[in-house]
Structure formats: structure tokens, C-alpha cells
Amino acid sequence: MFEARLGQATILKKILDAIKDLLNEGTFDCSDSGIQLQAMDNSHVSLVSLTLRSDGFDKFRCDRNLSMGMNLGSMAKILKCANNEDNVTIKAQDNADTVTIMFESANQEKVSDYGMKLMNLDQEHLGIPETDYSCVVRMPAMEFARICRDLAQFSESVVICCTKEGVKFSASGDVGTANIKLAQTGNVDKEEEAVIIEMQEPVTLTFACRYLNAFTKATPLSTQVQLSMCADVPLVVEYRINELGHIRYYLAPKIED
């Protein structure tokens, strides 16, 4: 028996919004430690890794490890039927071929349940090596989304250059050139507005705007985003989900021909 309950459907809606543009389907691996999903996008350029800890749920029960392959478009349709404040419960029997998603209004007067067929997805799991990143940047998630959106107008690619002075995002194309520099913030009253750079050595990497913009669909989940970079390895874009877990996107860099 698997049962996981969250106080607010809005969190699950936001999580789905954050992954459904990159992935058509995904396997939710459930164990007593929580729920994990790892999948590459169709082009195998990026990897999505979602972790939801069992202690972040209002109720969590997982008697046996369970892998639930789900069509994320179908799941999005079901979640559209929930009000943001509804309780949401995901339930499945052991070895079941369906999952039940139940919504309850705060006053318990409306209860709806939706059944969805599970899929047997033959998704490969990739081992992500421990990496000592040369630069780790923490910045407001909205600012990062704005920069990615703005620079996508100029080029398919954005160059991210991180030094101890700050982080620079650049793009150039037919229209011209664009450079956005962010300096590390000095004294900040609000932690969520801070730009913090931890640099071991400077790094310059090039990434596809299209994927960065897809990652920023996670912006409603978190006030801050963390970018981890190292020469010649994938960028990690991490959004923490308050008291529940995180979503990490890995993006392969663009390399010299």
C-alpha cells in the first residue's frame, strides 16, 4: 500500500508545471524515504531529478518500494481539477496498474477522486557523480527567469561567466549583443533577494537558452535558485521546495565543434 498526502494541491501543481514541458512521462519511485523521479528530456540534453522527502508530507506510507510510471500530461489534466487549497492524496495498492489521486476541500464537503492508468516505462537511471563545483551562485529565482527570458531574444545560447566579481550572462546574435552582470550583494535585509557567489576558480560555460527557460518553469516553487558550475560538466540548476525536497535540472554544456 502506498499513500502520500499533501496539505495543498498547489505544490503538486507547481511541481508538475516545472517538469511537464521537458518530460512527457516519468517514473515516480516511491520508498519509505519519499518519492524520487529522474528522467532525461527527449533529446537527452538535460536531466530532471525530483526529490520529495517523506517527512515533508502530511501523511506518508509506503509498505513496499513502488515505481509508478505516469503520463505527465494526464496527471496535469487531473491536477487541473483540484483547487489550490485542496488536500491531495496519492494512493496505490502494491503491484497495482492504476493510481488514485484524491482531492478534498478544506471543509471536507467536496471529495473527488481520479484514477489513472500507470505505465511501464523503460527509463534508464543515470548515476550522477559527486562533483566539486568551481562556482556556486545563489540568486533570486525571478531574476534568473527574467535573465533567461531576456537573453533568449538575442541568441539560442547564453554564456555564463562567473568570477569573484560576479556572474555575467551574455548572448549575441543578429540583433546585437546583450550582457547582464550581477554583482554579489553586500548587506541584504532579505535573504531571498541576495546574490551569493562561492567561487573556487572562475568558469565560463555556454548553454542552450531553450532548456534554461524550461527550467525556470520551477520559479513558483522557490524564491531562490542555485546554479552550480564547473568546466566541461553539466550545469546544475536547483530549486528547493520548502520543507519537502528539491528539483534539480542538469544541462549538458555546448562545446567547441
Binding site: M40, H44, E124, L126, A252, I255, E256
Partner: peptide, 14 residues
């Protein structure tokens, strides 16, 4: 001209 690399080049199958 820069080419897009694959995430598979960096992570190995488990």
C-alpha cells in the same frame, strides 16, 4: 560554432 553535447556523455547508466 558550438555544438550541443548530450547529458549521456557525462553521466553513466546505473
Amino acid at each position: 560554432k558550438k555544438l550541443q553535447s548530450s547529458i549521456r556523455n557525462y553521466f553513466t547508466a546505473k
